[in-house]
């Protein structure tokens, strides 16, 4: 045995891994993963005078069938779907149109338009809610005066105060605020399409509209799909706008109630009803499931079929 060959040193414990990953992971798991899982578990319990006991799916059954709960729950859910549908129908098409216009070749001031149109997106939903509340207020009368000036005065109404129009109005406000996001993302995708491809289509005889329909639109579909799922998650998680403009009661007569405000009321209680953390957890769990299903559907049916294109 030659002594010059020494046994290989044992690989030292990878302390650096713990140092790099540990702190971030610890905070993330403690304040995000654990609470989420804990909430899911909590939704299977009930509490009475400080004692908690396992009740299985009873909270969920209560939510969807009990007369004190179910109408409020189904109302919030249905409102939430309307809220989402409204965004899909308005926010994405408007964003698409603005993005296409912004990407017109040799457009002057494109950067300025882009910056200004994106501005409302930067502000807090709460602030935007208040701003629109003032603008639409019949007391101040700005909107009313404006509508009279363009000859539509008779259509003015206290939209935010009426049961039939409050949710639509709030959807409008939200669309107005967030239209910048689809605009920006679609715009970026349009800019990434090489000029040569557009030129090739022109030489192939396509006019501007055909080029848009056959070349550009298919290439921005993945972006539109992504914007849609972002909108879905944001909408089913919305709270601030309703809370700022209509309060936790989401009036008039709960016509603007979304799952977010319903969750808040369930957890903290309102008027005579006592807050319940287990029922709150049950609502949160349902929201979690809805979002999860939405994201999964997106991943499995949309994302898989629409491949990204490298140029």
């Amino acid at each position: 045995m030659s002594s010059s060959i020494q046994p290989e040193e044992k690989k030292p414990f990878p302390w650096h891994l713990i140092v790099f990953l540990g702190p971030g992971l610890l905070i993330y798991v403690t304040f995000s993963v654990y609470p989420l899982l804990d909430t899911l578990i909590l939704s299977l319990y009930q509490e009475q005078s400080g004692e908690s006991y396992f009740v299985g799916l009873e909270n969920f059954v209560t939510l969807v069938t009990d007369e004190n709960w179910s109408s409020a729950f189904w109302n919030a859910l249905s409102n939430n779907f309307q809220f989402f549908a409204f965004h899909m129908l308005l926010q994405n098409p408007i964003g698409l149109i603005l993005a296409v216009l912004l990407s017109s070749p040799k457009l002057r001031l494109a950067g300025t338009y882009r910056t200004l149109i994106f501005m409302p997106t930067m502000l807090s939903v709460v602030i935007i809610g208040f701003v629109w509340q003032l603008i639409l207020s019949p007391i101040w009368g700005i909107s009313e005066e404006f509508l009279y000036n363009i000859g539509l005065g008779q259509f003015f109404d206290a939209w935010l105060g009426k049961e039939g129009s409050a949710l639509v109005t709030l959807s409008f406000i939200s669309v107005w605020q967030f239209v910048g996001i689809p605009m920006m993302l679609i715009y970026a995708t349009l800019l990434n399409i090489p000029d040569d491809i557009i030129d090739a289509s022109t030489v192939d005889g396509a006019n501007a509209f055909q080029t848009f329909l056959y070349i550009k639109l298919p290439l921005i579909l993945p972006t539109i799909a992504m914007v849609s799922i972002l909108t879905f998650v944001a909408n089913f998680n919305a709270f601030e706008l309703i809370y700022a403009v209509k309060g936790a009661l989401a009036g008039p007569n709960f016509s603007t109630d979304l799952l977010g405000t319903f969750f808040y009321r369930t957890f903290f209680g309102f008027q005579l009803q006592q807050g319940s953390s287990t029922m709150g957890a049950a609502v949160a769990t349902l929201m979690f499931l809805i979002i999860l299903v939405g994201v999964m559907l997106f991943l499995f049916f949309v994302q898989r079929r629409i491949q990204r294109f490298q140029f």
Partner: peptide
Amino acid sequence: FQSYALYP
């Protein structure tokens, strides 16, 4: 085209 410019 130099880049071929095929529709991806």
